[in-house]
């Protein structure tokens, strides 16, 4: 399952970032590696990006839906 399938408030652990070296490197630059536990804070209107929070550091990142569909996750309970 991917990050895109989560609802606002859901938490999950990133298991793999596919979609090419550029995407995974950029995600890694923002601290979003495999193994990171994240929460979907908000989904923007008009099919806009998702606002993701890195639970350990509290850092927030917005990720477009195209990229979110490349982020594989292990879902957890809200």
């Amino acid at each position: 399952m991917t990050l895109l399938e989560l609802k606002e408030g859901d938490t999950a652990v990133i298991s793999r970032v596919s979609g090419g070296k550029g995407v995974s490197a950029r995600m890694a630059g923002l601290g979003l590696h495999a193994g990171k536990k994240v929460r979907v804070v908000r989904a923007a209107p008009f099919r806009g990006p998702l606002l993701i929070e890195d639970i350990s550091s509290g850092a927030r990142t917005m990720i477009g839906r195209g990229i979110a569909s490349h982020v594989e996750i292990l879902n957890e309970k809200r």
Partner: peptide
């Protein structure tokens, strides 16, 4: 367009 990946600082 690579799609948005952007830091949202506090």
């Amino acid at each position: 367009s690579p799609g948005i990946i952007m830091d949202v600082p506090p």
